[in-house]
């Protein structure tokens, strides 16, 4: 059998000396599935009927070859054990404190070790239902799952990320198509009945040649990002700045995106870069925001 180089992953070691590790065909298939399908796969031993994850090509107990017996697992599971890592060392993937948990994925028999975020340290417990959150950027490693988060709907309010949970590079966005009625409603809300927004004949004479939406209308789409996604519920916005780059026409689909760019350690505030783009990937506006992320939830009686 010949093996193509591209079928096999190489992992770079982090040591002073470089090492490269080969995941093997079985491990590579698992990693490719994570990367391309965002699917976690298990391997079933037909002798003991156990479904294993992480992948391995033999059942070490039965000594049976299992490398072909792929099974789709759910991207969610239950925490069967955990620890909160508070000591800081260079080999750690994120800055402590962080939660490392044993997570038994739905459909698997053996738990997988991974990071859990989005739950206050004091509220972490065995039995919690969590789901995989995939990394924005693939590293072709187990870190393609960035972390696990509690499955929504369990707590009364799904609070946003706290200062400690936020990391530079995390981002979130919200998209919406701007319709004619949105513009009319916004005119009513703001009192801005400028005919360039409402009167097509007038608008034909402007440089835009047709009606455009109020500048503040697409800009307001960043509010659901900051307030409900990143950092999320409990966020206080201190400052939002924006510079308009291109008009928004009726029917345009605007995506507002916020990305954490700086953590202000002293105040425990977070600075975010904002962008608004349309369906043609044109930059509609850009700016920045300064926010106070949600505080960790107070201890509550169960």
């Amino acid at each position: 059998m010949s093996t193509a180089r591209e079928d096999c992953f190489t992992m770079e070691g982090k040591l002073a000396l470089p090492y490269q590790y080969f995941a093997g065909l079985t491990g590579s298939r698992f990693l490719i599935s994570l990367r391309d399908q965002k699917k976690i796969k298990g391997l079933k031993c037909n002798k003991c009927n156990k479904i294993f994850v992480p992948p391995r090509s033999t059942c070490e107990i039965c000594f049976e070859e299992i490398s072909g017996n792929w099974v789709d697992l759910k991207n969610s599971g239950t925490v069967t054990g955990f620890t909160i890592i508070r000591y800081e060392e260079p080999h750690q993937p994120v800055k402590p404190p962080y939660i490392l948990a044993l997570i038994k994925l739905d459909g698997a028999d053996t738990p997988l070790t991974h990071i859990v975020k989005g739950v206050p340290l004091s509220k972490m417990k065995v039995g919690m239902k969590v789901k995989a959150m995939f990394a924005k950027k693939s590293t072709s490693s187990i870190m393609d799952i960035d972390h696990f988060r509690p499955v929504e709907g369990k707590p009364k309010f799904e609070m946003g990320y706290t200062y400690d949970e936020l990391e530079v590079g995390m981002s979130a966005s919200f998209s919406k198509t701007i319709s004619e009625s949105d513009v009319y409603l916004f005119a009513g809300i703001s009192g801005d009945f400028n005919p360039m927004h409402l009167n097509e004949e007038f608008a034909k004479m402007t440089p835009f040649g047709t009606r455009i939406a109020h500048g503040a209308l697409p800009q307001s789409l960043i509010a659901p990002v900051l307030g409900m996604k990143l950092p999320g519920l409990g966020t206080v916005a201190l400052e939002i700045m924006a510079r308009f780059k291109a008009p928004t026409y009726f029917g345009d689909t605007i995506t507002a995106t916020g990305e954490v760019v700086e953590k202000l350690e002293k105040k425990r505030w977070v600075r975010m870069a904002l962008t608004w783009t349309n369906q043609k990937d044109e930059l509609v506006a850009e700016g920045s925001a300064l926010v106070i992320p949600p505080m960790p939830l107070p201890q509550q009686a169960e």
Binding site: M11, Y21, F82, T83, L100, I115
Partner: peptide, 22 residues
């Protein structure tokens, strides 16, 4: 192993912690 455990920062201390809690 360099693929599924090492990147998560597992070491003998935090492995013991899983066992200790259980």
């Amino acid at each position: 192993d360099p693929f599924f455990c090492r990147p998560l920062g597992l070491d003998f201390l935090n492995a013991s912690a899983f066992q200790a809690r259980a």
